[in-house]
Amino acid sequence: MKKGLPLLIAVGVLLAALVATRLVGNRYLYFAGYVIFQYVVLATAWNILGGYTGYVNFGTAGFFALGAYTATVLILAFKAPLPVQIVAGGLVSAVLGLGIGYLTLRLRGVFFSIATLALALVLQTFVMNWEYVGGAKGVSIIRPAAFPPFASYVEFLFFVMAALAVVSAMAAWWIENSWVGRGLAAIRDNEEAAECMGVPTLRLKLLATVVSGCFMGVAGAPFPYYVTLVEPVSAFSLDYAVNSLAMPMIGGTTTWIGPIVGAILLSTAQQVATVTISSELNLLIVGIVLVAFVLLAPQGIVGLVQRLAGRRRA
């Protein structure tokens, strides 16, 4: 792929999002679009560690909620502006990634996964007991007033999330095509051989965990203004853990485009489905599709398309 193309696509997506806010009047579409872009960020973030490096993070909900609650504290304490919340949310979640990674990444990969499994529940317990952010009842956040050129603050949030999706995708693209990504791929293929070929495996794994955690926190930071009632059950929802992992697995884990394809397909389907079926049935379908893909199409949709294209050429 040519160097300029991703940048061109990025600018195109942002312009399209901006134009959309001028043309589309239906408020529901902004909420739906926000969720889809949010999942693009989460799936891309998960894939930087899970897909490129082969280390499974089950704790996306924990990283996401940490970003959301960091933003909540900043709003309650300082009325900090949104960009500050996003940067802070990303930093705090990055530090969490560094901590968990440092304790478990020197061991076999499964220990990292097991630690992340328990992580979200423990963070949730802390938040439940923290009165400042409303404990289990949660806390109400007042959305700021709209400012031009946006007709409402939700439109602005939609645009911000679109921008974050573009930034995360570009970060993934850069990692994939740089020496970092090649080192991560070597780790995924054979960690022992990678270390013996000069790849600083621990440092690269930590880097991937930090970047991945950071983007999960970033995705969570605008959450308070989006929902306006921040409470633990929805902030730590299992939806995030399942979707952030299912989307790359369904889309394809080895390229930056896979998680995006998976995120757009799966979250659009869920947005449509919640209107017609219960959210539990919705989740059940996600689970079954996930297992089906893992068993039958391990390369994901991108892999299937590549194989079809390859067959045609051959």
Binding site: G183, A186, D189, E192, A193, A194, C196, M197
Partner: peptide
């Protein structure tokens, strides 16, 4: 540098790319 008794290639990379890893990281 060492070779492994049971070969441990980077399976998702081509033969050429396998060599690029040590060239980039170690040499």
């Amino acid at each position: 540098a060492r070779s492994f008794q049971i070969p441990k290639p980077f399976t998702s990379m081509t033969v050429l790319e396998n060599l690029c890893i040590p060239l980039e990281y170690a040499a």
